[in-house]
């Protein structure tokens, strides 16, 4: 651990004291857990009939897996489009032309400031007024995810490009590359690599945010899974614990993947 320098290696008395404190801390945490357990037990939250449905194959097939598919498809579509949006606007903000740079900056700053929920609402309810058709809930969710996360990704990429040593750009020009080639072949790939951890955590944010689709009735994990299960078995809390667990597992896997990618390159 890099934090070990914050304290001395404990001596014999310190070791004893630490052991005692560990017991105290563990006891306190257990007490809190026990309190929650007892209170939930009072309300019958641990009753078997609330939990066993979560193990049934048909519950998974009807509620959880379709919900997961909805969440993942919105997230994947969002990631791809947000990445495109991010690249385009990062490049635009790096442009040498003021008339490209400034509008791009305004767009990015605007979408970074507006809550995703508002974007999704607006896409869903405003599309009819704006373009004459009602768009689907999926489109509304992806629209919001794209604009919001895309503008964040644009900023990450721009920071990545700016952090590269000047020599990279100069060398690329020196071998006769054009402006576009320098950016496309030299700067952006390195920026992506350097910013991989930040990009992956943004993708995790995006995946979690797709849960907001429930606001417009998009069939995702929280809506279909949680509400669908709860409507049948009135077990909101157990279902919510399961759904949260699924999100945590997926996100940790993404995190792990990012680590591996970061180490291999």
């Amino acid at each position: 651990m890099s934090y070990a320098n914050l304290y001395e290696a404990p001596g014999p008395r310190g070791v004893r004291r630490n052991r005692l404190l560990t017991v105290v801390v563990a006891a306190a945490l257990l007490a809190v857990a026990a309190f929650v357990y007892v209170r939930f037990d009072d309300k019958g939250q641990w009753a078997a009939e609330k939990w066993t449905p979560l193990l049934r194959g048909d519950v998974w097939a009807t509620f959880i897996l379709p919900g997961l598919a909805g969440t993942l498809s919105a997230a994947v579509a969002g990631v791809v489009l947000a990445a495109l949006f991010g690249i385009v606007f990062a490049v635009a903000r790096l442009s040498e032309h003021r008339w490209i740079r400034l509008p791009a900056a305004a767009v990015v700053e605007f979408f970074r400031s507006v809550p995703l929920l508002l974007l999704i609402f607006f896409a869903f309810f405003g599309s009819y007024v704006l373009i004459g058709v009602n768009i689907s809930a999926f489109a509304a969710v992806v629209f919001g995810l794209t604009l919001y996360n895309g503008s964040v990704i644009a900023e990450i990429l721009r920071a990545g490009v700016l952090s590269l040593p000047k020599g990279q750009r100069e060398a690329a020009y020196a071998v006769g590359m054009r402006k576009g080639q320098v950016l496309r072949l030299v700067l952006l790939p390195q920026a992506v690599k350097a910013m991989l951890p930040a990009l992956v955590s943004q993708f995790i944010v995006l995946l979690k945010d797709s849960a907001l689709g429930l606001i417009v009735g998009y069939d995702e994990l929280v809506d279909r899974g949680l509400n669908g299960i709860a409507a049948n078995f009135s077990n909101v809390i157990p279902a919510a614990i399961l759904i949260a667990g699924i999100f945590i597992v997926i996100n940790l896997a993404l995190d792990r993947l990012a680590h591996r990618l970061g180490q291999s390159s």
Binding site: V222, A240, F247, I248, L252
Partner: peptide, 10 residues
């Protein structure tokens, strides 16, 4: 790693 929607629900 938990969506805020779920945290608030809890």
């Amino acid at each position: 790693n938990t969506p805020l929607t779920l945290v608030l629900l809890f």
